[in-house]
Design a protein around this nucleic acid. Structure first.
Length: 492
RNA sequence: GCCCUCAUCGUCUAGGGGUCCAGGACACCAGGUUUUCAUCCUGGCGGCAGGGGUUCGAAUCCCCUUGAGGGUGCCA
């Protein structure tokens, strides 16, 4: 396909990166890798108030976590730098100057309050709020007077009268036609001297020789303005592809806090979602391979991805499906890795210390092996592993003890202790045989065996298989818990 | 208000005029495995927003309506 393409991901560091943004980055990454192209990371920090380097750092860390490496840009360098818009001011000014000299842009001294009033009036008249171009014809004297008042002008782009129809050829949407008449003279330099998004993005994409702009659909309506600037500056526009947005469960644009759904990438990382699972899930949101494959590796995704096959309609972020997918990855991934990833969660729960001894590690592996089938994400693991790390506590002791009542249960408990002690080696197979022997040879009903045992050993009504519980707990601990249960039963 | 976009099961989607009384996945329900729960396996429930065209034939093409989303900032 297209060779030598250049893509870019231009986040603004005004907040932690959220899942919708990351999906846009991911599609760019996929398309770049698919075509052996280059991906540029550019930081759009022209909003001085809201931008911060901390957010920039978070964005880069989360991209790295997800496995989206960039070939060029902030943090990696490259020959088209600088890659932070705040460091490219002179470049923008040069082009702004040029537009001014050519009469394609002009200074506007209207204050925000005045503009707001104009908009308000337009709205009450039922008209579209748009700047009327009143500063187009300001005389030198008028400008001087405003200057003297201390007004800082903005620079506006003069939308050509003859612009007519502006056509956006979108890779995903096809031809989209805009009437230039609806455009007003938009601001390209703010009064603080910084360029606006619509201006800076054009200069940067052109100068950085970006060939394909893949971005959210929220930018589609901005595209005609940008096209006008490409035209005015004599730049060749890139190909555009506007991705449908991801919506939250209320069908609104996914933003900051959409109810209590997690929206930041970091929240998923902290909850113990695997990066490859989130990657897989995000890739399938708005795109699907030709076959019905759902679980796909990074490589498979790159091979199968096709921008032209991306969906036009917005998708809702389906947490249930992410959970299923992530759970599947947790169950099918190498145990070693899951153990490694689980350790911080267990430590935070207080179940594990800083260092992990060799003999402890063996036990840890077993615990996680049985617990991993029961979780969607790693933060749920401590709760599942609790019986293996905590002393037994019976919340409702009387109800529990009720289960231990009766000679049959006591017989089961004592017999289990005896038989376990007679074992040469405690392993799943030998434990299994002991349990089978108890069921077959002891004159007790099944309901006097399994549930009471589970309760006595874990304090819970459900959980891993008894065989695993006994094997992992070990002889000593099993005896201790059985004795405790026996003592409780005797109190009846 | 105006401009732009979109519209298949609850959700993610396949489907580009006949092979679709619409296929897959998640969720849900039922059965099996596990004497528990989970995992795993099998099955089931469930949809072309509505109305007009075009056509021998429409989920697929066109128009309208409706609904949803985005834009309409000296945010990006």
């Amino acid at each position: 396909m297209t060779k030598g393409i250049r893509l870019r991901f231009p986040p603004s560091p005004t907040g932690k990166i959220h899942i919708g943004n990351m999906r846009t980055a991911l599609f760019n990454w996929l398309w770049a890798r698919k075509n052996q192209g280059e991906l540029v990371l550019r930081i759009e920090d022209t909003d001085r108030q809201r931008s911060s380097v901390d957010f920039e750092e978070i964005i880069r860390q989360e991209m790295e976590w997800l496995g989206l490496d960039v070939d060029e840009g902030v943090g990696v360098g490259g020959k088209y730098g600088p890659y932070r818009q705040s460091e490219r001011l002179e470049i923008y000014q040069e082009y702004g100057q040029r537009l001014c000299e050519e009469g394609r842009a002009y200074h506007c001294y209207c204050t925000p309050a005045e503009l707001e009033q104009m908009r308000e009036e337009a709205r009450t008249r039922g008209e579209m709020p748009r700047y009327d171009g009143r500063c187009r014809l300001l005389t030198a004297q008028e400008k001087e007077r405003y200057q003297a008042e201390g007004r800082q002008p903005v620079l506006r782009f003069k939308v050509p009268e003859e612009a007519g129809e502006i056509i956006v050829n979108d890779l995903i949407r096809g031809q989209v036609i805009f009437d230039a008449a609806i455009l007003d003279d938009f601001v390209i330099f703010k009064s603080d001297g910084m360029p606006t998004y619509n201006f800076a993005v054009v200069i940067d994409d052109a100068l950085m020789e970006i060939s394909d702009v893949i971005r959210g659909e929220d930018h589609l309506s901005n595209t005609p303005k940008q096209l006008l600037i490409y035209r005015a500056l004599g730049f060749e526009p890139p190909r555009f592809a506007h991705l449908a947005l991801i919506m939250d469960q209320n069908r609104a644009k996914l933003k900051k806090r959409s109810d209590d759904q997690a929206v930041y990438v970091g929240e998923y990382r902290e909850k113990g979602y695997l990066p490859e699972a989130l990657f897989n899930f995000l890739a399938l949101l708005g795109w699907s391979p030709k076959d019905d494959q759902e679980i796909m590796s990074r490589e498979e995704l790159i091979a199968a991805f096709d921008l032209a096959a991306v969906n036009k309609s917005a998708a809702i972020f389906d947490l249930d499906k992410l959970n299923w997918l992530n759970g599947k990855y947790i169950r099918e991934e190498k145990l070693e890795r899951i153990v490694e990833l689980s350790i911080p969660f267990l430590q935070r729960a207080g179940y594990l210390g800083e260092g992990i001894a060799a003999e402890q590690e063996q036990r840890l592996r077993r615990v996680i092996e049985v617990a991993r089938t029961r979780v969607d994400y790693l933060a749920q693991l401590p709760a599942e592993a609790e019986p293996f790390f905590k002393e037994l506590e019976f919340e409702d002791q009387t109800a529990v003890v009720e289960e231990f009542k009766g000679e049959q249960v006591k017989l089961v408990f004592t017999t289990l202790k005896e038989r376990l002690n007679e074992l040469e080696e405690l392993n799943p197979e030998s434990v299994k045989q002991v349990l089978q022997w108890i069921r077959k040879k002891l004159p007790v009903k099944p309901r006097a065996i399994y549930h009471p045992l589970r309760l006595a050993l874990t304090g819970m009504n459900s959980g891993p298989e008894l065989i695993d519980i006994i094997y992992i707990l070990g002889l000593e601990e099993v005896e201790k818990r059985l004795d405790y249960a026996l003592r409780l039963a005797d109190r009846l």
